[in-house]
Design a binder for these strands. Structure first.
Lengths: 263, 263
DNA sequence: CGGTTCATTGAACAGGCTCAACCTCAGTGG
DNA sequence: CCACTGAGGTTGAGCCTGTTCAATGAACCG
């Protein structure tokens, strides 16, 4: 389980930066916000690397030397308790940025859940670069604000919602991400296991399994395979996720349940 | 319950900026990180104002025009569900900054819980100022990273910890804040109600009350009054908060709670 | 004081957890 | 081609933590 040393591929090259620039995915990649003529200024603080599934890219509490941007693949952000309980605080996909330190230390661990390519930035010079390229600083700032808002949304789920509500919200969230990344959404793919979903939603994997069954019964989704799910009623899921349980009754025929479009 | 219009006091003045600078409290106030000679550059985007208890300073979903810094008082950050459930995602004290928009909109509401003085920044010019004063941008960045880490820590609590563990962690957190602000910590003051604590920890107020009783029984704290609590064993609380139930002192009794950890 | 808000305590209920058995499927090798 | 294997997933029964509902008590403010 302890991750080995990360496999470093190459120091910064022009093609690598291009690779980094190309991940415009969710909002925009950080490198993507650097003005054309100034890519040179960040070249010397960037490198690319790879991580295999289950490999730890960051260990909570370690002194922070790099921040990262995911070029392709997927990873999970997590925090652990000494007795083994763990909370996944976020899933990271193509284009996502992570690794900013707090008091010089990484506040949570990051573990790859698939073969992953990354772009990493030396932190000792990041502030200098950000001071020079204010567009990059602004992009990073708006990402941090977005991540914070996502974390707050997740707190609402964890603190107030039922298992079914949390799962419905989670599926919609994954669907929206897939959409933004241009991945298939008709049958969409969940790259993580039931246990990962459970650790993200603060539930057990048994509850995830049972809840997926309930969503299926209600006609809101179709479970195609372990990692493939299709939406049957996005409106129904949305209502459920927001607690508008109103009249979800397993949709008696005429009843469409989801009248109120919500807040 | 619906908040009235906020009472605006004065446009930016030199003394007000000084007031703002003086809140070095938690880490440092944002204005405090502006170099001496450049305060003038931010004067025209700053104003001070006040809010009364229960007054909404920000309503979730509203178009964002200002960000804020608390000069004195206290407020809560919260998110609501259409059926009335609410999650408090943070408490804001002297020196805290909030109100950065996500997609031009405020991602959560903010409500004063005491008489509060604020310093507010016009967002339409904030990016420009931040681009010019990189020290200010860096200070803001490190705050956002800190807030994000705090949110992740809270997710760990909400998703994995028991009521007692959450409450122990909460009390330590409040104690640490009081310490940083130079407020009394021997008997420390909780500015919020039981219901607020409950909404923050994802529990009910009855559970808070019962759990405080249990902490008292275990000899970890003393409850002096509604809003005043004294620590009797910080180490014991820390262990409890981290799930190191190990040697909680006497414990034995009927308490075996949840030994088995592993998922 | 009396009224209102906040807090404590009790009893019954329930959602999700625990423990355990069983199923499914992909990969492997005979 | 099929049996074996092991990780991941589903299903069931009983239990426990925290909720709900309700009554009582304590504090604050006119």
């Amino acid at each position: 389980m302890v991750a080995g040393v990360l496999r470093l591929v190459v120091p910064a090259t022009r093609s690598m930066l291009d690779g980094c620039r190309s991940c415009h995915a969710r909002s925009l990649s950080l490198c993507g916000s650097v003005p054309e003529g100034r890519l040179g200024e960040i070249a010397d603080i960037v490198e690319t690397m790879r991580a295999r599934p289950h490999q730890r890219i960051i260990v909570e509490g370690d002194e922070a030397r790099h921040a990262y941007n995911i070029v392709s693949g997927a990873a999970k952000l997590l925090k652990e308790l000494p007795d083994g309980r763990q909370q996944i605080v976020g899933f990271l996909l193509t284009g996502d940025f992570f690794g900013l330190p707090v008091d010089g230390v990484h506040p949570c661990s990051v573990e790859a859940i698939a073969e992953t390519r990354l772009c990493r930035f030396r932190l000792d010079q990041l502030d200098v670069v950000l001071g020079r390229i204010s567009a990059l600083a602004a992009a990073l700032r708006s990402r941090l604000a977005g991540d914070l808002a996502a974390a707050q949304e997740q707190m609402l789920s964890l603190g107030q919602k039922s298992a079914l509500e949390r799962l419905a919200g989670f599926l919609l969230q994954i669907g929206a991400q897939a959409d933004q990344l241009g991945l298939p959404t008709d049958p969409m793919r969940l790259p993580m296991t039931r246990a990962d979903i459970a650790d993200y939603l603060g539930l057990t994997l048994e509850t995830i399994s049972r809840s997926l069954g309930k969503l299926k019964e209600r006609g809101l989704i179709t479970v195609l395979g372990r990692h493939d799910i299709a939406f049957r009623s996005v409106a129904g899921l949305t209502d459920l996720a927001q607690g508008d349980e109103a009249s979800p009754g397993f949709a008696m025929e005429g009843d469409q349940g989801c009248r109120s479009a919500g807040s």
